[in-house]
Design a binder for these strands. Structure first.
Length: 428
RNA sequence: GGAUGGGUGGCUGAGUGGUCGAUAGCGGCGGUCUUGAAAACCGUUGGGCGUUUGCGCGUCCCGGGGGUUCGAAUCCCUCCCCAUCCGCCA
């Protein structure tokens, strides 16, 4: 959501932002609606003021028993009342149209976000470790299936495409990865571990920006109560501060959670159909920070380094990209993607996305903050990032730690979490 | 699923038709006192929109929407949410 005053003062720069997002100019339509709504509000207010003063006078006249005055005032109010409903209706309609228009527009890209229509304009900003070249490197699904611990067929039989069932060492590896990540973020980076609801209401998804525009990407459940399955823990973690006024001395707030995520993947037909790159259900360790506006850029860098640290400790080569204006998510002001090297695919694949949303989500959630001793409130900035996508991290471990005999060596930092298992081998 | 009670300012909690945007307490802020702090005491303290150079003024907001009325936090309708008890269940 946007600050109307800002658009009024800088309509051109707003449209530049929209253009960078690949959208037509919006400011003229917004300002026309805004002006109409304000004009109607003004007229409405004037009439209401007449009505209100007259009503007070009526009360006084009645108390005094002044029948003539009473009748005169009643007549005055009558004429005002005849005009009011139409005005109120028109004003409401304009305001609603304006709100609907605004709530469907994406966040403005930061000044240092590269322009571009899609991912081809993303820019690599750093790289860590040399990609391993492995002779005859296999893809993760070949490795997992050969180990007898990654089963797409059984999953499909009960749930359909884009589901996987893992067992034994691989199931354990998934849990080990998540525990390792949580321990790192809570133990070293100051994030508080949260175990949030996985089903949320409309308002929560509106706050983070998935609704009203991206319904088709979500799974909903239709019982007597309407819920949505979270597509990411960003939703419950960010909504912790929904409709709250935070004390600025309590910021930054840093939350982390390991949760399943559910995505319909509508529009992804034919993409990544093999293996577990793109599932309807996957688990992810999420990071969310709520910070003062001055601090969000610094926090964005910090959060990115927290996610990168996971890969460093797992000794998985990666590169970090800054997304172009056309490739960023709806609520993002600036986004870094971390891409991990997959020897089996011979390419880098996204494993984390870290976004600074500025005040975009805070406005939608009505989250405000206030300095100690001050009256005025303002909107904090929100950030979210994967730290990391657990399923894809598992893929990266399989492909980078695969051995010629088909087994997979457990990375050093995961050993404490694997109950003595140091090498994942084929089960009979 | 059945029954009941509720949703009021940063928080707690009064308020059942006419200066109620709202009593009070807590919290916050300012001050007195104190070497300093605490305590005590005094004062002050909602948000949005519009308008004004400014002081200010107008209007809307007591869960959402609609209605009754000259006038609604207060009455009516409707929807949402929360809590408690019972039943069922991990």
């Amino acid at each position: 959501m946007f600050d109307l005053k800002n658009i009024r003062e800088n309509p051109e720069s707003f449209d530049v932002g929209m253009k960078r997002r690949g959208l037509a100019p919006q400011a003229e339509a917004i300002l026309a609606l805004d002006e109409d709504a304000r004009r109607l509000t003004l007229e409405m207010n004037d009439l209401q003021a007449i009505r209100n003063t007259a009503s007070k006078a009526i009360g006084a006249a009645k108390a005094k028993g002044d029948e003539d005055e009473f009748k005169r005032l009643m007549a005055e109010v009558e004429s005002v009342k005849a005009k009011l409903p139409a005005l109120e209706g028109a004003q409401k309609e304009k305001a609603e149209t304006l709100r609907d228009l605004l709530s469907g527009l994406p966040n403005i890209p930061a000044a240092d976000v590269p322009d571009g229509a899609d991912e081809s304009a993303n820019i690599e900003i750093r790289r860590w470790a040399e990609p391993k070249s492995i002779d005859g490197a296999k893809e993760h699904f070949d490795i997992g299936e050969a180990l007898g611990q990654m089963d797409f067929e059984t999953a499909a039989a009960m749930s359909g495409a884009r589901f996987v069932l893992m067992k034994g060492g691989l199931a354990r590896l998934e849990r080990a990865l998540a525990c390792f990540m949580l321990d790192l973020h809570t133990g070293e980076f100051g994030y508080e571990e949260i175990n949030p609801p996985l089903l949320v209401r409309d308002e929560a998804l509106y706050g983070t920006g998935q609704l009203p525009k991206f319904k088709e990407d979500l799974f909903g459940i239709n019982t007597s109560e309407q819920f949505w399955l979270i597509p990411t823990a960003e939703v419950p973690l960010t909504n912790i501060v929904r409709e709250k006024i935070l004390a600025e001395e309590d910021l930054p707030l840093r939350y982390t959670a390991w949760t399943p995520c559910f995505r319909s993947e509508a529009g992804s037909a034919g993409k990544d159909t093999r293996g577990m790159i793109r599932m309807h259900q996957f688990s992810k360790v999420e990071l969310v920070s709520i910070v003062t506006p001055e601090y969000s850029e610094e926090e964005h860098e910090r959060m990115t380094s927290c996610a990168e640290e996971v890969l460093k400790r797992l000794e998985l080569p990666f590169r970090t990209m800054v997304l172009s204006s056309g490739d960023m998510g709806f609520s993002a002001h600036k986004t870094y993607d971390i891409e991990v090297w997959l020897p089996g695919q011979g390419r880098y694949r996204e494993i984390s996305s870290i976004s600074n949303c500025g005040d975009f989500q805070a406005r939608r959630m009505m989250t405000r903050c206030r300095k100690k001793g001050e009256k005025a409130t303002r909107y904090p900035h929100t950030l979210n990032g994967s730290g990391l996508a657990v399923g894809r991290t598992l893929i990266a471990v399989l492909e980078n730690y695969q051995q010629p005999d088909g087994s997979v060596v457990v990375p050093e930092v995961l050993k404490p979490y694997m109950g003595g298992l140091e090498n994942i081998e084929k089960v009979n």
